[in-house]
C-alpha cells in the first residue's frame, strides 16, 4: 500500500516537468502567434528596424537575432579552447590531487550568479576595453562574448571531461600496445572517439550562451542595430525581452512581438538540445555503451 503510494507520488513528480514544458509551449505559441496577423513572419524575422513603441511600430528582429548569433559565436571562440582545453588537461595530464582541486573550482564558475558576471563586465571589463581599443563605449558585443564565454566554460569543460572518461580504457591500451605515444594516442584515438561527446558539450555550451539574459542585458550595450564588428554595442534577443517585457502593455502587439522573440529563442535552444542529444546517442552506440 505504502509502496504504491510512493510510486504514485514519484510518477506525478516525474511527469510534472513534462506538464510544465507543455504549459510553457502552449503559452508561448498562444501569446506569440497574434503578432503574425500584423506582421508577416518573414518581415518579422528579416526586418531591420526594431521600433516597437512608435506609431506605426516596426517589428523587425534581424538586428536582435544577429546580435544573439554574434555574441554566441564570440562566446564559442572563448569557451571552446578554455573548456575543451581544461577538460583535456584534467583528463590526460592532471594528477589525482590537481584534478581534485581544479574540477570543483571550474564548477564553481557555473554557480556564480549571472548578475555577478554582468557586474564584473560592467565595472572591470568595460573601461578596460574602452581604453584598449579607444572605443566610445566598452559595452560591446566583444564584452558580452568574453563574459558569456567564461560563463559557458564550466558547461563545456565538465561535459567534455565526461565524454573523455567514457572512452573505454581498452582503446587507449590498444593504442599504447601498437607503440603510439601519449600525444598520438590523444590526437588519433581518444579525441576522435570522444569527438561527438565533445561536440555535444560545445552545443550545450552554445545553448547556455544564447539563452543567457542578465549578463548581456548589462554588458552588450543594448543598441538594436545590425552589428558590423565585435566592437559595437548590440542587443541580443534575450536582453530585448528582459528589458521591454515589464513595460509593454499587456495584450498589445509589442507584448506579442516579445513573446514571438521568446518563441524563436525557445525553438533555437530546442533544436540545439535535440542535435546534442542525437550526437550523444550516436556517440554512446559507437563506443559500445548502453544508451
Amino acid at each position: 500500500m505504502k509502496e504504491k503510494l510512493y510510486k504514485w507520488i514519484f510518477t506525478v513528480l516525474a511527469f510534472a516537468s513534462l506538464i510544465f514544458l507543455i504549459g510553457i509551449v502552449i503559452v508561448l505559441f498562444k501569446e506569440a502567434l497574434p503578432i503574425f496577423q500584423e506582421v508577416k513572419p518573414l518581415e518579422f524575422i528579416l526586418g531591420k528596424a526594431w521600433y516597437p513603441t512608435y506609431s506605426p511600430p516596426e517589428f523587425g528582429i534581424l538586428p536582435l537575432i544577429l546580435a544573439s548569433i554574434w555574441v554566441t559565436f564570440g562566446a564559442i571562440l572563448v569557451c571552446v579552447p578554455l573548456g575543451v582545453g581544461s577538460a583535456l588537461y584534467l583528463h590526460e595530464l592532471a594528477g589525482q590531487r590537481q584534478r581534485a582541486i581544479l574540477k570543483p573550482l571550474i564548477e564553481i564558475l557555473a554557480s556564480i550568479p549571472s548578475v555577478v558576471y554582468g557586474f564584473f563586465g560592467m565595472v572591470i571589463l568595460t573601461p578596460l576595453l574602452q581604453n584598449i581599443f579607444h572605443l566610445p563605449t566598452g559595452l560591446t558585443a566583444l564584452n558580452a562574448s568574453l563574459i558569456l564565454g567564461i560563463m559557458a566554460t564550466p558547461t563545456v569543460s565538465s561535459l567534455a571531461d565526461d565524454a573523455l572518461s567514457y572512452v573505454p580504457k581498452s582503446f587507449r591500451e590498444a593504442s599504447f600496445a601498437i607503440g603510439a605515444n601519449r600525444w598520438q594516442t590523444l590526437t588519433q584515438v581518444v579525441i576522435p572517439a570522444a569527438g561527438s561527446g565533445i561536440s555535444t558539450a560545445i552545443i550545450l555550451g552554445m545553448s547556455r550562451a544564447i539563452g543567457e539574459t542578465m549578463t548581456v542585458l548589462m554588458v552588450a550595450g543594448g543598441a538594436a542595430v545590425i552589428p558590423h564588428s565585435f566592437l559595437e554595442p548590440v542587443r541580443p534577443m534575450t536582453a530585448a525581452i528582459a528589458a521591454e517585457m515589464g513595460e509593454a502593455p499587456m495584450g498589445g502587439s509589442h507584448y506579442h512581438a516579445l513573446f514571438a522573440i521568446a518563441l524563436i529563442l525557445f525553438l533555437t535552444t530546442f533544436v540545439f538540445n535535440i542535435i546534442a542529444e542525437m550526437i550523444s546517442r550516436r556517440f554512446r552506440i559507437k563506443l559500445g555503451l548502453s544508451r
Binding site: 542585458l217 548589462m218 543594448g222 543598441a223 542587443r235
Partner: peptide, 21 residues
C-alpha cells in the same frame, strides 16, 4: 538605432558617469 538602450535609470547614470562622450 545604435543608441545604447538601458533598462533602468541607474544603468543610464552609471554608464554616463563612466563614458566620456
Amino acid at each position: 538605432s545604435d543608441a545604447l538602450m538601458q533598462a533602468s535609470n541607474q544603468a543610464v547614470a552609471s554608464i554616463v558617469s563612466r563614458t566620456p562622450g
